[in-house]
Computed example of a mutant assay.
Amino acid sequence: MNFASDNVTGASAPILDALVRANAGAMPAYGEDPLTASLTARFREVFEHPDLVVFPVATGTAANALALAAMVPPFGSCLCHAEAHVTTDECGAPEFYTHGAKLSPLPGTGGRIDPEALAAALAGRPLSVHRMPARALSLSQATEAGLVYAPEALARLCGIAHRHGLSVHMDGARLANAVARLGCRPAEITWRAGIDILSFGASKNGALAAEAIVVFRPDLAETIAHRRKRAGHLLAKGRLLAAQLHAYLADDHWLANAAWANRMAARLGTGLAALPGVRLAWPVEANEVFPILPGPLARRLREGGGAFYDWSSTSLPEGERVREDETLARLVTSFATQESEVEALLDLARQAG
């Protein structure tokens, strides 16, 4: 009953099979192989964009940091949500790879940036050599609270950013979950809404270790190849990254995995919310569930073998709070979560109540 993260699972069978096939024989190194060469065309098809450029990397941190480094100079700043992964969980990698640019946090319920707060922050920044100018906005899809941005909401935020001369980055570690939830085309919540660079996630949703920097504005791609090499993310056996991404996208495998994870999260959330004394901090929109649990229940679940994290309450809806005798928990499902695991945790919770 491990609901600590969608990183706790291994790789899905189609991706493992693809790796075995790609492992056979000899191919050119450092991304000069045919699998990597055909990856751009595959992404252009999926995102319906004729000019995008793709840079495979091994980790989401590398994707985010290198993407932001291509958008923000050392003397600039990047606006992001106060709980965004780029500012809370990457050990300063964006600042390191931008050579000192600053991440400027903004408020917003459920990890979503408030448009008014964004507009006010940009309007209130004096154009002075004494201040770091804003050069980028980073959005998370889905957010750290498991909520998704609809296309209209993204377009509004991107429009504000672009009017002030900012580029827009999307941390799409759980992009697949958002696409599955919204039932939209990937293009609708990326470049058509105004996203300039996407960190495309696969490792949380079936890949062994594969992410990609997807650049929708070719002018922003000019330095990424060199930045990736300098950062140690141009893999010698690049075909093994490309093989994972090809298998991930083939036959909508990425969306099937995400849809299953979302269904398991919805089932888990509905079951927990039905228990006495339990309420959900935010709606279940992707593959993360955030119940506010009575303290004794949280302890009983852990004692019974349930694994999950305590979570921050800083972006709760107005009027909601976590009392001293309660725990705000995060439970995450994945493509590999079994119905029996969900029911086992719910049975344990019912017994504890």
Rank of each mutant, 00 (worst) to 15 (best):
F47W: 10
V342L: 04
E116H: 11
M170L: 05
E116F: 01
L137T: 07
E318H: 03
L255N: 07
P74A: 10
A344T: 06
E152A: 12
L127T: 14
P14W: 01
A281F: 01
R350E: 03
N257S: 09
E83K: 15
S199I: 04
G194R: 10
L275V: 05
N287G: 02
G110C: 13
V129T: 15
E339I: 08
G304S: 07
L220G: 06
L127W: 06
A298N: 11
E326S: 06
R44D: 15
S104D: 10
A286M: 04
G232A: 09
R239S: 08
S199P: 06
S334F: 01
A250K: 13
A236N: 09
V332C: 11
E83F: 12
V54K: 12
H164Y: 11
A150V: 14
N205I: 01
G194S: 11
E318M: 08
I195P: 02
V53T: 14
V168H: 05
L255T: 11
E45T: 15
G146V: 08
A256E: 10
P34G: 05
A93P: 05
G76W: 00
F216M: 09
F216R: 12
A212G: 02
R300G: 14
A58P: 00
A256T: 12
I197W: 10
S312D: 08
C91R: 13
W260G: 14
L118D: 12
D347W: 03
G146L: 02
L280A: 10
A352P: 02
Q244Y: 01
A236G: 06
T337E: 05
Q244W: 00
R21A: 15
S128N: 06
R330M: 07
A265Q: 08
S12A: 10
V332G: 04
L154T: 07
L255F: 11
F308E: 06
L328G: 10
L103S: 00
G124I: 05
V72H: 05
I15N: 02
L316N: 01
C91D: 15
R279Q: 03
P14I: 14
D310L: 13
T333M: 05
A70F: 01
G25I: 12
M132V: 13
L245F: 03
A119T: 14
A173I: 08
G76A: 00
K229D: 12
P74K: 03
F335G: 08
A120N: 12
V214S: 08
P126Y: 11
T337F: 06
A101M: 08
H169M: 11
L301A: 09
L345F: 04
A221P: 11
S313A: 14
A266K: 13
L348F: 00
A13T: 07
L137N: 08
L198S: 05
W311A: 10
H226Y: 09
L241P: 02
A82T: 13
R217A: 15
W260V: 09
D325M: 02
R112M: 13
A119P: 07
V20R: 11
V148K: 05
L68T: 00
L66D: 01
A155C: 08
V215S: 09
L208E: 04
L137K: 07
E339R: 03
F290G: 04
R181Y: 09
G92T: 09
T270E: 15
A180Y: 07
H49G: 11
L106V: 09
T98W: 00
A22Q: 14
L220W: 15
K204Q: 04
T36C: 12
